[in-house]
């Protein structure tokens, strides 16, 4: 393994997340009960996705500054691992929804489907999905790299409005939505105590580093495959 300190850090942080995430005390809240521990897993998927998309965005800009094909490979693979994190965030959210919103809060399927955070996240993921479709539709690699880099910047520009801004403007079922005390849909800061934060932030870093590790593996495979292309 090359440059392995952060890979080991990722492993240590995730080990800490799993052990302390299950064993430490969490606030006793109605409806949420023990599922508040999902914060260390479900929410971290979204955080990791956002950070990986930011990295991808930076590499797209770097590509457009110097047209180094390497940067295009970086941007593409960070975006694809980001999407996987997003899909995992969705999948874990579905399980959480079916217990806390549908069963305990008695929300209908209609109100869950109208949830703006869900729609926003779906829009963001579909925009990134189109990025891969766009990439796949080019045969010329330079054209593919240029247009997909520009598109990636557009996709990133849509990411935060659709998952952060719009859900704040309208009502949301997520804790901390407008109407409740804290105006931050998805993460009610009043629900978390200091002990939870001590696990949550390392968890975000751990999951992000794991995503970055997987992305670098994909990048290295692609670089090997394109070695002839890059070095003549």
């Amino acid at each position: 393994m090359n440059k392995s300190w952060w890979k080991i850090l990722s492993f240590v942080l995730l080990l800490y997340t799993v052990i302390c995430g299950f064993l430490l005390d969490v606030p006793r809240l109605p409806i949420l009960n023990e599922t508040i521990r999902n914060l260390y897993f479900h929410v971290c998927m979204w955080f990791a996705m956002m950070i990986l998309f930011i990295v991808s965005f930076v590499y797209s800009i770097k590509y457009l500054r110097g047209f180094d094909y390497r940067n295009d490979i970086f941007a593409h693979n960070f975006a694809s691992v980001g999407c996987i994190m997003g899909i995992l965030g969705y999948a874990t959210g579905i399980i959480w929804v079916s217990v806390t919103w549908v069963t305990d809060q008695g929300q209908s399927l209609g109100s869950v489907l109208k949830e703006p955070k869900l729609i926003g996240a779906a829009i963001a993921l579909l925009i990134y999905g189109a990025y891969f479709v766009l990439r796949g539709s080019f045969t010329d690699i330079d054209k593919r790299a240029r247009i997909s880099a520009v598109y990636n910047i557009f996709a990133f520009a849509m990411l935060f409005p659709s998952i952060w801004i719009i859900p704040r403007l309208v009502g949301s079922l997520h804790p901390g939505a407008p109407g409740s005390d804290s105006g931050n849909p998805a993460l009610d800061k009043n629900d978390m105590d200091a002990g939870m934060r001590a696990v949550f932030y390392p968890a975000v870093i751990g999951w992000t580093l794991l995503g970055a590790w997987i992305a670098t593996l994909r990048i290295r495979i692609e670089l090997l495959r394109d070695k002839k292309l890059l070095h003549g």
């Binding site: 393994m1 995730l14 799993v18 052990i19 590790w213 593996l217 090997l224």
Partner: peptide, 24 residues
Amino acid sequence: VVAVCVTILVGLFIYVMSIDRKIK
């Protein structure tokens, strides 16, 4: 529960590490 999750995590990391080694 913690033991099961730690096992899965360790297994995953060993797997990713082996891929890393292969690429190396």
